[in-house]
Design a protein around this nucleic acid. Structure first.
Lengths: 231, 231
DNA sequence: CTAATAGTGTCTCTTAGACACTATAAA
DNA sequence: TTTATAGTGTCTAAGAGACACTATTAG
């Protein structure tokens, strides 16, 4: 047996799917693209595609390439979600899909001319393949990470107020948060940078504008134990 | 283009690797198996193998099959870790490995006659492929989950005392915990079931024995917010 | 002035951490 | 007795939640 021969067994179909999420008017939206080939040709699905062994040096690059090709954008946040596999999930045969999820600002999507569909994440139950499962897993992950991380900030426009940020967290968590406590937490996270020009002619008293700091670690340093006290 | 044709691009090598962890005398051990084929024939690696499209209905089944074949055991806890991929991680070509990690009791491993190596997780730096990365990811995951879940209990023997359980948590977290606080937490988790027969002739006062409850949800219900208070 | 939202001060109640105490066995 | 470990009571300090307050704009 030579080194380069290898497979005694045949190889599965290998794809990448991306759950691209954004926020519009307090609603979490998922981006769908029309499938370009059978099966499900023309049906709205999660943007996805084959792993291209020539172009991609790993599956994360596949994901960024697919996002560039199908949605015309470079995302600020991309994370591997989970790998879905099985003999029956794709009618073409035994298949493996490495799923990623990405967060973008709404403004970045609107710039693209590609035709995409944006729909509330609760709105579809009947996506092709197991894309419904994948979408649910992504939304669950985002929601649970919202509890203890600065992840949701990636959904904000370039400049925003703290109250706007609070509305986003409230949407994701499905709960009303206390203003004082929220600001304390955001302060401790130290992820926001004050922008001198104010704004929000909307209400009455104008609010201070912020932007996301450059190096955002995405994770709160809640590494403080929690299990019975230190030494 | 027919439905069953499909790949315009070729398919990668598709494998599964398992990080099998156990605990011995307060040390976290990883199980290694000798590779049976090139490359790295005979070298100790994480137990792994090809996804078998005929036998396995998904990659999780591949993982359980591989554990059965290579270590002769059925694990009580198995979880998908992360998928590793790339053109260069395997000399045979572009490859994808879905990594899992599993927890077993030491007693279950010793029953097997298969030749395996058990080594402390800190002891090896030079595993073949990217198995070092995979091992690190698994250990990190186990450690971080130890903070807020009952996961470590799967490493315990069938019957154990609370102090023994505390030692395991201390090993994983690398910290000495307070007895009172630890017992409070374990109590709240409600994962232990008292066993009437006592034991531990070791020290002086004998300790109450416990077993893991049947339905162990693996996750603490710390879903209590943490971000600024409820409504 | 009122209305409406931005932003802060501060009290209370929960809980994690610390640690001293009692309990039960062996020798 | 002493020694060593099992298991409990309880004080304290930090932090989350609640909420009232001040600040600043438009009209």
């Amino acid at each position: 047996m030579t080194i380069s021969s290898a497979p005694e067994v045949s190889r599965p179909i290998m794809t990448v799917d991306v759950v691209l999420l954004t926020l519009k008017e307090g609603e979490l939206l998922c981006v769908l693209a029309p499938r370009q080939a059978s099966p499900f040709k023309g049906v709205w699905t999660l943007p996805g595609g084959w792993v291209n062994l020539d172009k991609d040096s790993n599956t994360e690059e596949s994901a960024t390439r697919i996002l560039k090709e199908k949605a015309g954008l470079t995302v600020p946040y991309l994370e591997q979600l989970q790998t879905f596999s099985g003999a029956t999930r794709d009618s073409r045969g035994w298949s493996v899909s490495v799923a990623y999820y990405a967060l973008v600002r709404l403004e970045d999507i609107n710039e693209t001319s590609v035709k995409l569909q944006l729909a509330p994440v609760e709105s579809f139950k009947n996506l092709p393949f197991d894309h419904g499962l994948i979408l649910n897993a992504a939304v669950d992950r985002l929601r649970s990470k919202s509890l203890y991380s600065s992840l949701p900030a990636h959904l904000m426009p370039a400049l925003f107020t703290i109250t706007q940020l609070q509305r986003v967290y409230e949407t994701l968590l499905g709960a009303v948060l206390d203003k004082r406590g929220f600001r304390r937490r955001i302060d401790e996270l130290d992820i926001l940078e004050l922008v001198s020009g104010v704004s929000s002619q909307d209400g009455h008293r104008p609010a201070q504008m912020y932007r996301l700091k450059n190096s955002t670690p995405n994770h709160l340093s809640t590494a403080t134990s929690n299990l019975g006290g230190g030494a």
